[in-house]
Design a protein around this nucleic acid. Structure first.
Length: 590
DNA sequence: GCCGTTTTCGGCCCGACTGTTTTCAGTCG
């Protein structure tokens, strides 16, 4: 089975290796774009016909052929050729901050550096200092960067980055002279992991803000410190970039620093096609020689909306800025025809969520009582809560056997008297065992109001087995939702890799919802899955998998992921009103 | 390698910062 992740990794490696070999930078970029195009694909790329692949932005004849070659043989011949030429360890050398393709290539070909170990030896022997433009400071920086790389933590999870960014924005925003401040980058786009934090500010005294930023107690090292741009490394190992721009250019800058890089490139190309130039200071009219004259006044710059509008676009939500066709989708005319036609669709927003359908009490591995959970759901304006403690196979999570479960159902139903306004369901998060059977017999499941079926063990199963396993649960007449369908942990484990298209079709046919688990460790389904499932007509349940009171706050990550998946509000179970949700539930209880 | 409202070749986004330079190459985002 050739997964999109594997194919994307091949294109990324092709980019890195050809970069070291000194290939045309545009060819290198083309490989990188192909990697991202495959990553963002909802279907399995290897099963898409060549002609259809070539229609996808960023893929062409050559990359489409490579995708099929990988599907058939498990590798790409051009990649194998490059691997034979370039020492494998050079990839980790190129990954060091400050070392680019030119430097890596020179160190390899002239000094015999083949990996981090030989690089360190070459530095200590004074050989690196013999290369052109390689002075004392460069060497010192390189040493620091190597030390950091050896202890680095890589990309951090959305749910770790967001609280850091919120705190930083609040702290810097409180300084006098700060007129506006916001986080940008992949965090604002809601990606499941974040490489570094990008903070954008407008301030009456930029130098003073820069100084305050670099001297914070949290800062371990200052990577760069300029008049408008500084980068620091925090003690927790996170890189934070701060950029300061004039207030009247804030929108253009926010757009630029939100990215994605590919989205920005599309926007600049669009500007050029209209005789305009776009940069982080605004949208400008070109001078006589295609240049922007010094001191030119921008056509648009203060807000993102006006920049998009000046280029004939509606404001594009950050979550959609991934170069996946959004410029066509948000073109002015396109939207009018969308709205005019019957196909006008409203996308999901945080305030639409009115139910939590997956949570755990002290009966299994949660920390709250039934009443505490229901009270919190009510406080948050929800109309429905489903209590779904673990089933008996989850020993480590204190899963309930049949006897305890029957008592628990009674206790949950008894809570209805104390919370008359809430719709309270007695449910279970039933294990989908490795063969696809469920952890309780049908008569037990039938006694429950609500059944979430989830895979917890055997998460390294072969794709075919995993598909069959999940299909059994999806087609089971008593199952309402498949919980965290792949079982992946962000930055932890990949989880199952079933043939998703089969799952979507079955889920639609059998009226079973698929969960988007909001917990930042899971975010499962992930964004591209949500998009494909929504296109296939599935219902999606966005749940927090609540174990403790603060877990309700994870919802923002689930909703960001749903936005990235372009989930229409009508296809989100948790956005139905209480009556409609109950009617949907009863379809599984004949 | 991709792409086309100057189309099948000749382009390909743009600016800040750093260090080693006396005007800029390399790297990054």
């Amino acid at each position: 089975m050739a997964t999109n992740a594997e194919i994307a990794a091949c294109f990324e490696e092709l980019a890195v290796l050809s970069e070291i070999l000194g290939a045309n930078v545009f060819k290198v970029n083309a490989f990188r774009r192909a990697a991202r195009a495959v990553e963002g694909l909802a279907q399995e790329a290897a099963s898409v016909p060549v002609a259809a692949l070539k229609e996808i932005d960023g893929l062409g004849a050559s990359t489409a052929a490579k995708i099929h070659e990988f599907g058939a043989s498990g590798t790409m011949s051009e990649l194998e050729e490059l691997r034979a030429q370039v020492p494998a360890g050079l990839k980790e050398v190129l990954a060091i901050q400050g070392i680019g393709p030119k430097t890596a290539r020179a160190m390899w070909q002239e000094l015999g550096v083949v990996d981090l170990a030989t690089l360190k030896v070459a530095i200590d022997a004074g050989k690196v200092a013999t290369l052109p433009r390689m002075g004392e400071k460069s060497i010192a920086k390189m040493k620091e960067a190597i030390a950091f790389a050896e202890s680095a933590r890589g990309r951090i999870r959305l749910g770790e980055a967001m609280p850091l960014a919120d705190a930083l924005v609040a702290e810097l925003g409180a300084l006098s002279g700060v007129q506006r401040i916001a986080y940008a980058g992949s965090l604002r786009r809601g990606r499941d992991t974040i490489g570094d934090l990008d903070i954008l500010a407008a301030a009456s005294d930029p130098a003073e803000l820069m100084r305050a930023f670099c001297e914070r107690g949290e800062v371990a090292r200052v990577l760069g410190h300029g008049e408008t741009k500084s980068s620091v490394l925090t003690k927790s190992g996170v890189q934070v970039d701060l950029r300061v721009v004039p207030l009247d250019r804030f929108g253009a800058a926010l757009m630029y620093f939100t990215g994605s890089k590919d989205h920005n490139i599309r926007m600049r190309e669009r500007a050029i096609a209209q005789g305009l130039r776009l940069n982080e200071y605004g949208l400008f009219r070109e001078g006589a020689h295609g240049e922007v004259p010094d001191g030119a006044v921008p056509i648009a710059a203060a807000t993102e909306e006006e920049v998009y509008a000046a280029l004939g676009l509606d404001w594009i939500p950050p979550t959609a800025r991934e170069d996946r066709g959004e410029l066509d989708q948000f073109a002015r005319g396109a939207r009018e025809s969308r709205v005019a036609g019957a196909s006008a669709v409203r996308m999901l927003a945080l305030a639409d969520i009115r139910a939590e359908l997956h949570c755990h009490t002290r009966a299994s591995d949660g920390s709250m009582t039934i009443d505490e959970i229901v009270a919190e759901a009510e406080r948050r304006g929800f109309h429905t809560i489903a209590i779904t403690d673990h089933s008996k196979s989850q020993f480590q999570a204190n899963g309930l056997d049949e006897t305890r479960l029957r008592a628990h159902i009674e206790a949950i139903h008894a809570a209805r008297e104390r919370f008359p306004k809430m719709q309270i369901w007695a449910g279970s998060e039933v294990d989908i065992l490795s063969d696809g059977s469920l952890d309780y017999a049908d008569d037990v499941l039938a006694a429950l109001d609500w059944v979430v079926a989830s895979p917890h063990a055997a998460l390294k199963q072969e794709p075919r087995l995993a598909t069959d396993r999940l299909m059994k649960a999806i087609t089971h007449p008593l199952v309402h939702v498949i919980g965290h369908p792949t079982g992946r942990i962000v930055n932890g484990r990949p989880g199952l890799e079933p043939v998703m298209s089969e799952l979507y079709a079955a889920a639609k046919e059998h009226g079973t919802a698929l969960e988007l688990n909001s917990h930042h460790m899971r975010l499962d389904l992930r964004d591209v899955h949500v998009r494909a499932a929504a296109d296939a007509g599935c219902m999606i349940a966005i749940n927090c998998d609540v174990h403790a009171i603060n877990d309700f706050d994870e919802l923002r990550y689930g909703v960001l992921t749903a936005e990235r998946g372009l989930l229409p509000v009508a296809q989100c179970l948790n956005a139905l009103d209480a009556k409609a949700l109950d009617a949907w539930r009863r379809k599984k209880r004949p």
